[in-house]
Design a protein around this nucleic acid. Structure first.
Lengths: 217, 217
DNA sequence: TAGATTGTTAATCGATTAACAATC
DNA sequence: TAGATTGTTAATCGATTAACAATC
């Protein structure tokens, strides 16, 4: 067990659980809007279409205690989830590759609710350099190296073309980046202490298209 | 076992496997460029940093047979993977919600390599209607209903604000859509024969931020 | 033939689900 | 008190990894 802020939280939380947590958070925010003070796992499970036991187990990672016959305090849960996921902190990030996807992520307002703040974007395309998207400046790629020791940015968002992904990722690591959110299809080879979160659209497309194909037989 | 085109393929393929397949495909395309005709599972595993046994098992779903001491035929594997995933077919889709994320997906060239063709986008914002992004027209939302029986579109891409997601999803289903690629945070309640692929940025952010927090202790 | 690699079957590991005791 | 719900422990399920036989 480790102490993260106010709540006792479990050490290594399974990835499937982590992925479900934002869903609870979004749901609970809606529920709170409606003025619900306490909410039980069976109710959440019914609304979200998942197993109530799983809800209990998932929410347990936040360290919040529920009351039998009453459930959990909505506000406390929301706060603990935000705290646990780091959504209520400011998580500074650099973005490299201001193409279609990069530009969208820069403009995407939703990131703010995740506490993700993109401080600057970098690109090699002189047509893009100097532009501002969603309030974020696009800088000359080489500027990355001069910024790294003045700031303490830990997250790099990688939206470059696939063939330069590995090189850029290495540059980011050399600049002190600890975690890379990789939107390219490239498989990155990096020191193992670097956290790499692969988010490939094609993986999702694969599941969707295959399931559609299965259904049509 | 079911017959899909040329190869005997397994019926229900586990989701983790499906998600890995595009990674093999991308890797194999690079390998083919280099002129490699045959490739073995241990080689793939070494390059992609995964278990060779898993590679064998994953590739087996395509029905392609490898030769002991030789490996698999690169070209055959690529073709079988594209065939299995449906990337070499034209998969027509409608997109609803031409905001930041929607616009990015419209402009995103990569989709073409997934055989995904967005025929049209729909929005209620009169400022957006009539615009063209990435060659795709943005139409008045209500037009959706007049198009549905003249076309045979099976995939709906949902990039609306969260609070209208459920309503739009129901409209899409009423228009004959069979699969929904849901980029919103809303949990959709739809008939169970409808395939829903949830792709929530916040799930990935949750994993990334939490792992970063774990690492910093 | 010898040896590397496929491909299948068994063992392990981890997550989900079920069962049940604790508790408000 | 009675009963609903939490929370923990056990059982199940599924995917990954390991072992090994088949084969080119």
């Amino acid at each position: 067990m480790s102490e993260t802020g106010k709540y006792k939280t479990k050490d290594r939380v399974p990835e499937p659980t982590l992925k479900r947590l934002p869903g609870y958070l979004y749901y609970l925010e809606q529920v709170k809007e409606e003025g619900t003070i306490n909410i039980s796992a069976p109710t959440i499970g019914k609304d979200l279409g998942c197993d109530p036991t799983q809800v209990v187990k998932d929410l347990a990672v936040t360290g919040v205690k529920g009351k039998p016959r009453v459930g959990y305090n909505t506000y406390e849960l929301i706060h603990a989830l935000e705290d646990f996921l780091g959504f209520n902190r400011i998580n500074e990030a650099f973005l490299v590759g201001a193409g279609n996807l990069g530009a969208a992520l820069m403009a995407y307002q939703e990131h703010q609710s995740l506490g993700l703040r993109i401080l600057a974007a970098f690109d090699v395309d002189s047509k893009k350099i100097g532009q501002t998207i969603g309030g974020i400046h696009i800088l000359e790629y080489n500027k990355l190296f001069s910024l790294y020791d003045r700031l303490n940015v830990k997250i790099g968002i990688l939206t470059t073309p696939n063939h330069v992904a590995q090189d850029v990722a290495e540059d980011l690591v050399n600049c002190g980046i600890k975690a890379i959110w990789n939107f390219t299809s490239a498989k990155l080879s990096l020191p193992e202490e670097i956290i790499v979160q692969n988010t490939s659209m094609s993986s999702y497309a694969a599941v969707l298209l295959r399931r559609l194909n299965d259904a049509e037989k």
